[in-house]
Structures are given as C-alpha cells and as structure tokens.
C-alpha cells in the first residue's frame, strides 16, 4: 500500500514536472529568440556598454521580460538536468531533488540579480 502511494506521488510529481517543463519551454521559445535578436542588434549596431545600459536603465518592459525569462529558465533547466542525472549518472531520490531545487534557486537568484542590475544601473 505504501509502495502504491509512493508510486502515485512519484507519478503526480513527474507528470507535473513535465507540464511545467513544457509550459516553460513555450515561454523560452519566444524569450530566447527575442534575447538572441537583441544581442545581434546590439552587436551589429555597434552599441557600447554605456549605450546599452542607457536603453535598459529604468525600462520596466525590459525588466519584466528578463524576469519572466529568468523564472522560466530556472524552472525549465533543473527539470531537464534532473532527467540527465537520472539517466547518465544513475542519481536518484531525495538528494537529487534537493540538488535540483538548489540549482533552480541559484539560477533564479543570479538571473534576477543580473536583470535588476541592468535595470537599476
């Protein structure tokens, strides 16, 4: 009975992780394209750091876009990484889940910090 409940809870989690991964993939498909286009624009237009910051500083749209990007990436990446560790390193169980939550939090903190730094520079 306990095993059955564990399987059910594993299934519920795995299915929800998959939903989260697919949903964030949808966001990332657009976000990555916009991100790359922005980089190419900035480089080809010959903008220097000061000119880039001049465009991003105080730009709420910029902050909102990159916050969404960071949140989506922080959810998406650890789920995929978890699968890779399961398959390639045979790492299973609670320690893996805790490590992946840590990865998610690190990505989230670093990403939001960077987005906010450029916004508030």
């Amino acid at each position: 009975m306990n095993a059955a409940r564990n399987a059910a809870s594993n299934a519920a989690w795995t299915a929800r992780l998959l939903v989260a991964q697919r949903a964030t993939a949808f966001v990332l498909a657009f976000a990555v394209a916009i991100h790359l286009a922005t980089i190419i624009y900035a480089v080809r237009a010959g903008l220097n750091a000061g000119e880039i910051l001049g465009r991003t500083r105080g730009n709420a749209l910029f902050l909102a876009f990159y916050s969404l990007f960071v949140v989506a990436a922080s959810i998406h990446a650890p789920i995929g990484l978890r699968n890779i560790f399961r398959e390639w390193a045979n790492w299973r169980g609670r320690s893996l889940n805790i490590a992946m939550i840590a990865v998610a939090l690190i990505l989230l903190a670093l990403g939001l910090r960077a987005a906010f730094a450029v916004y508030a520079a």
Binding site: A7, A8, A15, E87
Partner: peptide, 15 residues
C-alpha cells in the same frame, strides 16, 4: 487512474 499513475513515474512514458 492507477494505470496512468503507473506509467507516469520517472521510469515511465516521460522517459
């Protein structure tokens, strides 16, 4: 329900 639970685990269809 129990079948979908059985195949939705980490070792199931999503792998």
């Amino acid at each position: 329900t129990s079948r979908l639970e059985a195949v939705a685990t980490d070792s199931g269809c999503h792998s």
